[in-house]
Amino acid sequence: MSRPIRIIGQTATWLGLAALVAALAQGPAFSPVADGHGELRLSMAHLAERLVPCRPLTEEERLALPPTRRVTEICERGRSPTVIELRLDGELLVRETVTAAGWHNDGRAYLVTTFAVPAGEHRLRMSLRDTPRDEGFDMEKEFTLRLESGDAALLEVGDGDVRLKAPDRH
């Protein structure tokens, strides 16, 4: 093969590499959320009730403990699973039973999840059960959610409080 053709071949190779890199390094574009939608994030870090309530120690039990460790009550470690339900305009978004974290299920119940929500105004209802019962809820809250396309709202469920943080344009 003659030298000019070899040089053309080599140039074409490196241009080909550059073209391949250029084609995929900055695109094609990807849309994480559909057009006309926003995102609702649910973040829960909630300490549920104990499965067995704490009870006061009797005087005999207290005296049996070392002097520096004489606490007034004793608590079993297990905590109730947390049931959380989220409805948007009456439609169920999520219903999840979250086990308390830790080897002994004595930590918080954690849940992070996201939902694509059409832009506009919505009624958001959150129901939560965190006691050792089989039916019903211990906490229910309702919010008005206003989202524009590309907005992200956060529903944060803490130990005792629930708050909705949405972009405020007013």
Binding site: V21, L24, A25, Q26, G27, P28, A29, F30, S31, P32, V33, D35, G38, E39, S149, G150, D151, A152, P167
Partner: peptide, 13 residues
């Protein structure tokens, strides 16, 4: 983080 990206030019590699 109060917004969600609508269109991203991703590095597919």
């Amino acid at each position: 983080l109060d917004r969600v990206p609508v269109s991203l030019d991703i590095d597919w590699f």
